[in-house]
């Protein structure tokens, strides 16, 4: 379901395609890391108050692992890679060659997940950098283990609760083992304007 206040269909189409390209790059990196084919869903866009972001990305009460970073140069916004905890266990089992998966994420596993998140976020942004033909830099990602509804409490501390943000999310999964997750780009409406300008320029409209 897409909500689109103040964004034209054309802009939303461009934003979805941008997310498609980023997720395509990220899924290749993830596929190489886990040795499994990664299937990606169609991008979904929504504009919501920041307090509702967690509910849009996962179930409110679901334990999740979030790896997040803010974009620093070339683009403003945030990137978020979310795995339900069960998927994080399966992913870790795959990385550690344990068919039964693992049942606990210790310091070592969290560090490994953070590195994996950094690689896939980097691949995602490399896709965007190629699209926009410019360098994009991001902060070293952070990792958090929490429930879906509170993930934004960690990553968006500088944004007021009622401020609206644009989310562009793409779900992905692998079949064996079953790993589900989402890649999300998040922009406050004020940081969205430069991105829309880039897209318009890309299309020769600015």
């Amino acid at each position: 379901m897409s909500e689109k206040p103040e964004l034209s269909d054309f802009e939303l189409d461009a934003l979805r395609e941008t997310a498609n390209i980023g997720t395509g790059s990220a899924s290749i990196a993830l596929s190489a890391l886990v040795g499994q084919k990664v299937t990606i869903d169609v991008p979904k866009t929504s504009v919501v108050p920041v307090r509702q972001v967690g509910d849009r990305i996962s179930r409110a009460d679901e334990p999740v692992i979030g790896i997040y970073s803010s974009l620093q140069k070339g683009m403003s916004g945030n990137i978020l890679f979310v795995l339900p905890q069960t998927s994080a266990f399966a992913l870790m089992g795959q990385l550690k060659n344990r068919d039964e998966g693992i049942a606990h994420l210790g310091k070592e596993e969290m560090e490994l997940l953070k590195k994996l998140g950094s690689v896939v976020c980097s691949a995602y942004l490399a896709g965007l950098a190629k699209l926009f033909e410019q360098r994009i830099e991001f902060r070293t990602p952070n990792i958090v283990s929490t429930v879906g509804s509170s993930i934004v409490d960690f990553m968006l501390v500088q944004i007021a609760d009622d401020e609206e943000v644009l989310l562009i999310s793409v779900a992905f999964n692998t079949e064996t083992p079953r790993i589900d997750g989402t890649f999300t780009l998040l922009f406050t409406l004020s940081t969205l304007a430069p991105l829309l300008e880039k897209l318009r320029r890309k299309m020769g409209m600015a």
């Binding site: 189409d13 461009a14 979805r16 395609e17 897209l199 299309m203």
Partner: peptide, 11 residues
């Protein structure tokens, strides 16, 4: 199916 992509190629 993406107008964005069509426009990019067209330009």
């Amino acid at each position: 199916d993406s107008l964005f992509m069509r426009t990019m190629i067209k330009n």
